[in-house]
Amino acid sequence: MALLCILPLFVRLLGMGEQFATLAGEYAIAILPVTAARGVCEVLQAWLACQKITKPPLYINLALTPFHAAVCYSLVFNTRLGFLGAGCANSAMWIARAATLYMHCISPHADLDRPFGGLTRRGLRDGRGELLRLVLPGVLMSDYWTGEAIMVCTGLVPNPAVALSALSVYTSTLKMIYDVPNGVRSGVTVCVGRALGAGLPSLASLAIRNGRLLLGCWLPLPLFAVCAFTSGWARIFTRDEAVILQLHALVPWLVVNSCAGGLMAIANAVMAGCKRLPPSWRSSASLALASLWGCSSASALG
């Protein structure tokens, strides 16, 4: 959230122009609540998933999808906010999602194995060490660092509008494809953890195999569609031929990234279910941070 607040200054330092910096700052303020609300949602969904409770979050997400679309359309086209309305609608949707999930978790009518006492200082204090031990390596090794660095550096290329448009479509498609591996990762993590906790390693192995099978069935479908109908996929988002040409060049990287993401999803699920960190996480984290500007920035500018 602090980065969003200083985004205009950061944009100016990159030399992207005063007008662009002003618009970026206004949009950053519009989406400021998203970070906190999304964090609450991730925590609550993981807590529910550990108890094999997945339907309430699903129903909440399904109910809020038309709400988000209606609010976004109304704010963008029926108010003076313009594109800022999309950011405000996104914030409203995530706040509503977090509030609804939280109310469900503290409801006495929720069918929970363990009651949820709410977010308390004691809970944060007692579990802080274990949480940081498990979370920090994932934060340091997250591909979001390199991905966002590339997005920032595209503002410095000769034709930033084309590059930013192409990367925006690329990342949106990649995230959509990864939604299924992300769900599989959560499911495998819970199943492996519960199976090992019950002393049933065979069930843990079965969960891992089923996770791989699900990803093996899912990933070829969107990737084949993107490869076979690249122009059609690109024209869903834009009519700019320069952007479409860039998207054609990005398709092989989309395939590689999606497949690697699927493999990493299963690997991360297994390690999380076993409450283990990869032996080389320190060196991996250092490599990720070193490559943040060394590799990703060079790739973007090249």
Rank of each mutant, 00 (worst) to 15 (best):
residue 46 A to K: 14
residue 134 L to Y: 02
residue 255 V to K: 04
residue 132 L to W: 02
residue 252 P to R: 03
residue 247 L to W: 00
residue 286 S to F: 13
residue 158 P to W: 07
residue 292 L to Q: 01
residue 60 I to H: 09
residue 184 V to G: 09
residue 97 R to E: 09
residue 275 K to Y: 06
residue 281 W to I: 00
residue 154 T to L: 13
residue 16 M to L: 15
residue 234 A to T: 05
residue 82 G to E: 04
residue 24 A to G: 07
residue 28 A to D: 07
residue 293 W to Y: 03
residue 254 L to T: 00
residue 47 W to V: 10
residue 255 V to Q: 08
residue 122 R to S: 07
residue 229 F to D: 10
residue 129 G to R: 11
residue 8 P to R: 01
residue 223 L to G: 06
residue 147 G to T: 08
residue 212 R to S: 07
residue 80 R to D: 11
residue 11 V to N: 09
residue 239 R to V: 13
residue 257 N to W: 07
residue 200 L to D: 14
residue 110 A to F: 02
residue 22 T to N: 08
residue 66 P to E: 11
residue 137 P to C: 11
residue 136 L to F: 03
residue 152 V to N: 00
residue 14 L to A: 12
residue 49 A to S: 12
residue 180 V to Q: 04
residue 122 R to T: 10
residue 37 A to Y: 08
residue 160 P to K: 02
residue 275 K to G: 02
residue 172 S to P: 02
residue 238 T to M: 11
residue 216 G to D: 09
residue 136 L to N: 00
residue 243 V to P: 02
residue 40 V to T: 11
residue 43 V to P: 11
residue 48 L to Y: 10
residue 215 L to V: 10
residue 88 C to D: 01
residue 5 C to N: 00
residue 53 I to N: 10
residue 1 M to D: 11
residue 76 V to D: 01
residue 229 F to N: 13
residue 217 C to S: 08
residue 134 L to A: 12
residue 118 G to V: 01
residue 20 F to L: 15
residue 277 L to V: 08
residue 295 C to P: 02
residue 184 V to H: 09
residue 104 H to G: 05
residue 256 V to M: 14
residue 193 G to F: 09
residue 218 W to Y: 15
residue 281 W to R: 06
residue 166 A to Q: 05
residue 266 I to W: 00
residue 81 L to V: 08
residue 139 V to G: 02
residue 125 R to T: 12
residue 279 P to C: 04
residue 237 F to Y: 15
residue 53 I to F: 03
residue 236 I to T: 11
residue 72 C to Y: 06
residue 24 A to E: 00
residue 63 A to I: 06
residue 158 P to R: 05
residue 219 L to I: 13
residue 144 Y to T: 12
residue 77 F to R: 10
residue 140 L to V: 13
residue 124 L to W: 14
residue 139 V to N: 03
residue 71 V to L: 12
residue 159 N to I: 02
residue 30 A to D: 02
residue 23 L to D: 05
residue 185 R to S: 13
residue 199 G to P: 12
residue 203 L to Y: 07
residue 292 L to E: 00
residue 210 N to F: 05
residue 58 L to W: 10
residue 66 P to T: 12
residue 245 L to N: 04
residue 287 L to S: 11
residue 75 L to V: 05
residue 206 L to I: 07
residue 296 S to G: 09
residue 279 P to S: 04
residue 273 G to C: 04
residue 29 I to H: 07
residue 156 L to Y: 03
residue 105 C to A: 14
residue 243 V to K: 00
residue 247 L to P: 01
residue 287 L to A: 15
residue 91 S to N: 08
residue 42 E to Y: 15
residue 213 L to N: 03
residue 60 I to Q: 04
residue 138 G to M: 03
residue 230 T to S: 12
residue 20 F to T: 15
residue 205 S to C: 02
residue 165 S to W: 00
residue 94 W to D: 13
residue 60 I to R: 06
